[in-house]
């Protein structure tokens, strides 16, 4: 996936460039609105990450001139969280909107969501190591042993399994499993993960559900030695 970042703040631009490159994206960087507009119009990108506050011409203007010619998906970044800004941005044709301070994981998740749009349907059976998740019958098993999960635990597992190998933040887990779209300061996700982990990894040698401190959780079959996770 080819991404153009239009961002004037040096540190933000640099870490986005580096982070997204390491995620395997082809990333170009424009440090002001004029360059950004030029690059967006002359090259073909899959997604644009566009800051609102830019020197020269601002993000809304860049978006407008791009929309006049192209339908490249755009994620707007802003430090101002005014409802008007959001509406303004979405009306001007932005596909998504992130308010600073946002987490990098969140950005990656949104990029993937934009990229996933219009793709073929997801498979109904998922395999992670020896874990088999049957989405149709809502059943999960490790090897031959069936896992006895509650409905919510299964939903959580399904969300993690669908995005296996991807780090999911607590916020996006809350959103995907419980449809909770607002900020909470509860430890619900931690508790839920702990429960799922007890059933999923507890009795087994090979751990699949991993905690990435300060970032979130990832379900994947790692090759490394088991037992180092907290």
């Amino acid at each position: 996936m080819r991404i153009l970042i239009v961002e004037d703040e040096v540190k933000t631009a640099d870490y986005l460039h580096r982070g997204l490159t390491e995620q395997g994206y082809a990333v170009d960087l424009a440090r002001n609105g004029v360059d950004g507009r030029h690059m967006a119009l002359t090259a073909d990108y899959d997604v644009l990450v566009l800051d609102v506050m830019l020197p020269g011409i601002d993000g809304f203007e860049v978006l407008q001139s791009i929309r006049a010619h192209k339908q490249t998906p755009v994620i707007m970044l802003t430090a101002r969280d005014r409802v008007n800004d959001r509406v303004h941005g979405l009306r001007a044709g932005a596909d998504d909107y992130l308010v600073k301070p946002f987490s990098f994981l969140e950005l990656v998740a949104r990029l993937q969501a934009l990229n996933r749009r219009g793709r073929a349907q997801e498979p109904l059976d998922l395999m992670v190591g020896d874990l088999h998740v049957d989405l149709l019958n809502r059943r999960a098993a490790r090897g031959a042993q069936r896992l006895d999960l509650t409905a919510k635990e299964f939903s959580l597992l399904a969300v993690l399994a669908r995005r296996q190998g991807e780090i999911l933040s607590k916020t996006s887990i809350a959103e995907m499993v419980w449809d909770i779209t607002f900020d909470t300061n509860t430890n619900v996700v931690e508790v839920a993960i702990k429960r799922l982990r007890d059933k999923l990894d507890g009795p087994f040698e090979r751990k699949l559900l991993h905690t990435i401190r300060g970032m979130g959780y990832v379900l994947e079959a790692r090759d490394e030695e088991p037992g180092i996770e907290p």
């Binding site: 919510k152 419980w178 909770i180 430890n187 619900v188 508790v191």
Partner: peptide, 13 residues
């Protein structure tokens, strides 16, 4: 009910 459901694990604990 939705938020109670969300809190379910914590409450259960």
């Amino acid at each position: 009910r939705k938020t109670v459901e969300f809190m379910e694990f914590v409450l259960d604990d």
